[in-house]
């Protein structure tokens, strides 16, 4: 396949231009500074290229950090590789990476499910329930149904041939779908609407945990949910939890944080997995999600 530019020169999340080969001592940096550096690096590496990349070995990411003398991340990536996570799939860093990553990874798992018929039927019944959730939280049908229909159609296409092409979903078709902004964003939007609705329907559970990601100020439920429903707004733990609860999905997030313990912190969401599906594993670097693969 054509459009991966993984081999291009890695971005330098290091300080001012002209600092030459001076290694950056990243361990002494404040989390906020680290975050900003990472953001800049991500923006440079991820602003081009497809919405969902081809699978690449994790060693590529390692070498990018190594070239930047970012030893903490290198150590963490080594740990992942040693523990069997050899590959990853980049997702464009456009603020929708969490939703796109989890959506894509979920469909890949559904495709690979040995009992795909059962998995699809289960998924469809969960999707039907989200319709109710949306109605209950006052989202107009007119607003959600195109996104919902697309999500259902893609799910059904795993076992039923698409009426226009006469073929069932393949990984290749799925990639094409997720790389087309218009198609891809319908799934992202569906996931965003569900996330917001889940928070709204369970105010007691979430209301004290809603903070603005930049200012860290508390946010009201409506303000927070409005933000969730807009494209390009990044997701944090609260959104992940809400989405997983609404769709009965399981996620594990591997946090590369430069915290430099001897192992990488995997966060399981929810704490007790929903039965039926293996977790989707995401790789988190400050401000960005990719898909992590064994």
């Amino acid at each position: 396949m054509s459009q991966t530019n993984d081999s291009s020169a890695p971005a330098r999340p290091s300080g001012p231009e002209g600092s030459g080969s001076e290694p950056l001592n990243i361990e002494g940096l404040q989390p906020q500074v680290l975050y900003d550096l990472n953001q800049q690096a991500l923006e440079r590496t991820l602003s081009d290229g497809p919405l969902v990349h081809d699978i690449a070995p994790l060693s590529i990411l390692r070498s990018e950090y190594e070239a930047n003398d970012n030893h903490v991340f290198v150590k963490e990536i080594d740990w992942l590789i040693e523990h069997g996570y050899k590959d990853f799939r980049r997702v464009k860093g456009d603020g929708d990476c969490f939703y796109r990553a989890i959506g894509f990874a979920f469909f890949v798992q559904l495709l690979a499910n040995p009992d795909s018929e059962m998995a699809v039927v289960t998924t469809l019944s969960t999707l039907t329930a989200t319709r109710q959730l949306l109605n209950e939280t006052g989202v107009q049908e007119l607003v959600y149904e195109d996104f919902y229909d697309q999500m259902v159609a893609l799910t059904e296409n795993i076992i039923n041939p698409d009426p226009t092409t006469g073929s069932v979903l393949t990984l290749e078709k799925l990639l094409k779908f997720f790389r087309d902004p218009q198609e891809s964003n319908t799934i992202v939007m569906y996931l965003r609407l569900i996330t917001a609705a889940q928070i709204q329907a369970n105010v007691d559970e979430y209301e004290f945990f809603l903070f603005h990601p930049d200012t860290r100020e508390p946010m009201s439920v409506p303000d927070f949910c409005n933000r969730v429903m807009g494209l390009g707004k990044e997701a944090d733990h609260v959104e992940i939890k809400a989405l997983c609860d609404a769709l009965r999905w399981n996620v594990q997030v591997a946090y590369l944080g430069g915290q430099s313990k001897d192992e990488v912190n995997f966060v399981k969401i929810p704490d007790t997995p929903y039965p039926g599906f293996d977790p989707v594993v995401l790789l988190y670097r400050p401000g960005h999600y990719d898909i992590l693969l064994k």
Binding site: V139, Q140, L142, V143, F147, M189, L193, N226, M229, G230, L231
Partner: peptide
Amino acid sequence: GNEWSPVLS
């Protein structure tokens, strides 16, 4: 602008 959401009609 930045607070647009598809929920709006």
